[in-house]
Amino acid sequence: MLPCTGRIDESLLLKAFENGADGVMVIGCLEGDCHYVNGNIRARARVERVYNILEQINIGPERIRMYNLSAGEGAKFAAFTSEFVTRVEELGPSPINLARSNGPKESEQEVQAT
């Protein structure tokens, strides 16, 4: 958990995949509502860059996604999380995890930040 998505950078997101994540979900505050002015806007650009990197190395860009929520939207948070987890489950284990285990893994790890 990070205090602001503005702290996220590309290396941190890629590290999550190196550490075995099948998908990474980044959740920032609503755009225009960042306590640190533009932390979530910066995070969006960084997530896009990682999306492009994952596409280039055939990990599957859809394994990373950014959502924007306010701290009071618990139900929406749950819905977004379910949606993303379902999507990642459909994709199956990342090529990294497949190479490591030669088989699908049940668990998937997600990095979340609000």
């Binding site: 950078d9 290396s11 890629l14 590290k15 190196e18 190395i57 990990i59 090529p95 190479a99």
Partner: peptide, 17 residues
């Protein structure tokens, strides 16, 4: 920063391969 990102990218690409 670019060292970190490139290194992670290369490790991921090579391990996936």
């Amino acid at each position: 920063k670019e060292v970190q990102v490139l290194s992670s990218t290369l490790r991921l690409a090579r391990e996936a391969a």
